[in-house]
């Protein structure tokens, strides 16, 4: 067996804040192979974005942050290489796109120039070669008239086009892993559809691994084969997307699936919000972090952290009732769906 492309092992991220430590990521482990597509889902504060940032140690200088565990990318532990080497990986082997492309693009530099700069830096191209490649890349992500548009500043692009520019910048150095953090949350649905299709096409054509962070299971369904659900800094459920829709096991996953109105349903009464809020201090306790909000919780949930239990092929759930719930799901079909 060859090494996986990405192997995250027991990742912990702790922020020291004025009001005490926050365990934003609390023992997360997962692997990705080339061409894999992984959706990471959870509420705000679940630790999904912090996990992605920790892979590349992308934190503000002002953050008092401690990272533990290991992040092996192509066999090299990114947490243990120096900042200079890590800079080669960021925007090189690992590309990133974020919700708001404007914060990641230089507003005073033509977009073509920004892409060319990255190509010179990471791929050692000459000036004219890089400029030509930048135009080529803009065309590839579906920007019409790329020669002309390469000379324009980011603010002359619409939201969707700006996200395309961001994607062309992220894939410029042929990354082997692309991390997309809520890449379409700010976009209209028609534009979102285009961007999601583009990400999917790029992943397939480049054999690139895609990690997509979102709160929207629909977005995951359109782009990812696998999904992991995070709560309070921990992975609570991992499965193939198809399997998760059929057999969501963890009560938190079930809650997330039930809480949004599904488009295909007409008004079917009130929605089912998950009572309460995620803990502001993140994980780190000696109980199931979801227990205070869980209607199935019993004594053991409040005194012991539930381990990840296999409840099906490639399907793990960190719940003391996982095995029992898996059995019920098999018997009852899709319990979270409102209409069978």
């Amino acid at each position: 067996m060859s090494l996986p492309l990405l192997e995250v092992d027991d990742l912990h991220v702790t922020f020291n804040t004025a009001s005490g430590p926050v365990h934003a990521v609390d023992g997360v482990s997962f692997t990705m192979e080339s061409g894999d597509s992984l959706g990471v889902v959870g509420e705000s504060g679940s630790g999904k974005s912090v996990t992605a940032r920790a892979l590349l140690r992308l934190f503000a200088i002002t953050d008092d942050v401690r990272i533990a565990g290991s992040v092996r990318f192509d066999g090299v532990d990114l947490l243990r290489i120096d900042e200079r080497k890590l800079r080669d990986v960021r925007g090189g082997q690992i590309g990133m796109i974020f919700q708001d492309p404007l914060t990641s693009l230089n507003p005073l530099m033509a977009v073509g120039e920004q892409i060319a700069e990255s190509l010179r830096l990471h791929r050692g191209m000459g000036r004219s070669e890089a400029a030509a490649e930048a135009v080529e890349l803009l065309g590839r992500v579906g920007i019409a008239d790329p020669e002309r548009r390469a000379t324009e500043l980011p603010n002359s692009f619409s939201g969707g086009m700006r996200q395309r520019v961001m994607i062309s910048l992220a894939i410029a150095c042929r990354p082997r892993l692309l991390i997309a953090d809520e890449p379409t949350t700010a976009l209209d649905v028609t534009v979102q559809a285009e961007i999601l299709l583009l990400l999917d096409e790029l992943r397939r054509s480049e054999q690139m691994a895609l990690m997509l962070i979102t709160h929207d299971f629909g977005v995951v369904a359109a782009t990812c084969e696998d999904v992991q659900v995070m709560y309070a800094g921990r992975l609570v459920e991992k499965a193939s997307m198809v399997h998760l829709f059929d057999r969501a096991n963890h009560p938190y996953t079930e809650g997330l699936l039930r809480l949004v109105p599904r488009f295909e349903d007409a008004h079917t009464g009130r929605l089912h919000p998950i009572a309460g809020q995620p803990p502001i201090t993140g994980g780190g306790g000696s109980s199931c972090a979801f227990a205070p909000r869980c209607s199935h919780a019993f004594d053991r949930c409040r005194s012991e952290v539930p381990p990840e239990v296999a409840v099906g092929p490639q399907h793990l759930s960190a719940c003391w009732l996982a095995a029992e719930r898996a059995k019920d799901a098999t018997e009852a079909g899709r319990p979270w769906k409102r209409d069978p």
Binding site: T190, A193, L196, A221
Partner: peptide, 22 residues
């Protein structure tokens, strides 16, 4: 029709539907 088809739904037809939307 395009708007509705563009909504990503949490099911196995999600990707195919977006192709239609396009």
């Amino acid at each position: 029709q395009g708007l509705i088809t563009s909504v990503p739904r949490a099911d196995t037809e999600s990707a195919a539907r977006l192709q239609t939307a396009r």
